[in-house]
Design a protein around this nucleic acid. Sequence first.
DNA 1: GATGAATGAGGGTTCATTCAT
DNA 2: GATGAATGAACCCTCATTCAT
Lengths: 195, 195, 195, 195
Amino acid sequence: MARRRIDKTDAILKAAAKIFAVNGFNGAKISEIAKEAGVADGTIYLYFQNKEDILHTLFRSTLEDFVGRLKERLQQAKSPADALRIVCEHWFGFMEENVYLAHLNLVELREHISGERRKKLNEYIWPFFEIIEGIIRQGIEDGSFRPGLDIRHTRRLIFGAMDQIVASWVVSGRKYSLTALIPSTCEFIIKGLQK
Amino acid sequence: MARRRIDKTDAILKAAAKIFAVNGFNGAKISEIAKEAGVADGTIYLYFQNKEDILHTLFRSTLEDFVGRLKERLQQAKSPADALRIVCEHWFGFMEENVYLAHLNLVELREHISGERRKKLNEYIWPFFEIIEGIIRQGIEDGSFRPGLDIRHTRRLIFGAMDQIVASWVVSGRKYSLTALIPSTCEFIIKGLQK
Amino acid sequence: MARRRIDKTDAILKAAAKIFAVNGFNGAKISEIAKEAGVADGTIYLYFQNKEDILHTLFRSTLEDFVGRLKERLQQAKSPADALRIVCEHWFGFMEENVYLAHLNLVELREHISGERRKKLNEYIWPFFEIIEGIIRQGIEDGSFRPGLDIRHTRRLIFGAMDQIVASWVVSGRKYSLTALIPSTCEFIIKGLQK
Amino acid sequence: MARRRIDKTDAILKAAAKIFAVNGFNGAKISEIAKEAGVADGTIYLYFQNKEDILHTLFRSTLEDFVGRLKERLQQAKSPADALRIVCEHWFGFMEENVYLAHLNLVELREHISGERRKKLNEYIWPFFEIIEGIIRQGIEDGSFRPGLDIRHTRRLIFGAMDQIVASWVVSGRKYSLTALIPSTCEFIIKGLQK
DNA sequence: GATGAATGAGGGTTCATTCAT
DNA sequence: GATGAATGAACCCTCATTCAT
């Protein structure tokens, strides 16, 4: 029973990820998600409160998973610069494995249907931002990075650079390898922080 | 007559910029735009084909204006690094002066109601991207920037970094000065390209 | 223009009265009302806020009309007993002329979808109740009716008796004359108050 | 087995009475009734054909019970007027003891989702009406009441008066004693019939 | 008999677009 | 050209009922 419950939740989330990614949140129809998930329209409401709840759950669960794995990997980081490299690798790799999420991140995390929604979705990505900010702080402390860097501002610069690479890759139709761009992306970022 | 035509077109575009920015494309109602512009609902359809046409015209005209002014300013650039500084200043300044556009850029340029729409909207920003790419190319040629930089990839890194700063500023409710962040942003970008 | 507005409002109200009466409030579909009124579904929302607003307007306007005419007629009343006779005549006559309203009164004024709705609908009938209470008060004062009658309680007894006659007539399919029952109804009521 | 069957039937009916009373027929959810009754949703359909069947059974069984007890009590009536007093006492007392039924009577006996439903529900109250009509007939015969009274019409007047008192009491939130109103109610009714 | 997860039909409401004036 | 009343397609969500276990 519990098993089944999880199966359907997953099926719906997976279907939603696809439909949201293709059509955006507003363009996605519940009936389409249901069809894709192989359940009846009403069934969705046994597992989620409403359309928005699906989106939130999708973000939360995926990002929690992402952050959890990232933290593990980061334990092997030898330096702040190395840690940033791991972050970039992980982010790009994660996006390649979860293209739908990449779409969603691109589209919905930034969309602005109501300030409220944006705020909640932003909450879910905060743990990731905190990781980056922690690395910057450490880099400043151990002298790897310039003193005087504003932590938050710098985190935005780093995330923005990485994110734009993902966004362009998504918009391009993913015609090239994202992971191949890790070295040059990291070089730009790390150089931008040094000295 | 022609004069009047332009007046109304402008009034509608101005109204649309405001309404789109506040409510997003999907959330904006034609009737609200009409009211804000001081015309009847139906009048809008004498000047634009449909709701989407308004958005496209808005982007195109605003970005054309932006690029035109930027090009003028860039004639005084003393070096590629200086040119990038001017680009950043101009972009941030432009966003501060056109908050509505900043919102729109944040929201709609990235939204993805249909791949089709995104593609068209991206077209309008291309001239701006070409300017940045031209600066990078020049910087590589005159030795200011690292050789071996991939022009397009680098442009994305630069734009992504700048853009994230704007995005965060918008999301924050514009509670701080955007232009104050120009120096630290440029330092990150330029250092990222050097050596 | 104003004329048209009134025409449509009336057409919708008339259609709604019919559809509500036949199907009840919950059973009535907006699309049916629209069809009956000869307008598009959406047009209804240009004239009314929502389905409930139609019901309220229907009650309010009809009862206002009813009370207005009743007050005029009552000016010719020669005694409290005569006034009650006029009230009964008017109520029964009104119901015969507005069968749909009779249905509605029977059905919706009493229905209990939410306490809120009932309360509002009851408000509209209050002016009628006040008229009856005024007559009772006067009858006690001039000695026509028993002293010691509780005004409110007595009004309920009177209204209840009359109303049940209407209700039975509606339920029967209106196979007999309602006005023919005025004398016997009034006799019961007036005798019930005297001595 | 048979015993168990009755237990569950009763539990469901009792739960339904409560839920119907609070929410009305349309507003009541099968799942709520099931929860209140402590059974599964599907179980209800082992005991009743559908939602409407529950309502019918509820009315029939409750009113049968009511009429049965009333008949017993009426054997001690000393006169038609006394009998009417007993009827009123019993009706008011019954309503006070079965508030849920009072609500239901108020709401659903009169509701009119389909003429069909009303007709059936009315059937269940007929035995009560017949008792009242019998008393009137007897009163006319023994000279207690006016000759020439129309039996059916008079029954409606009596029931209407009593019922309105109950209805107002229910709507008021039952903030006062219903049984306290028996004397004045009976005085009105009996005076209305005499001479 | 009992369960409760699953079903899917049904409807109020919004709003981009049209067109008679 | 300008108006704005009218249109009607589109969609999320509820809940009575079913049926596999």
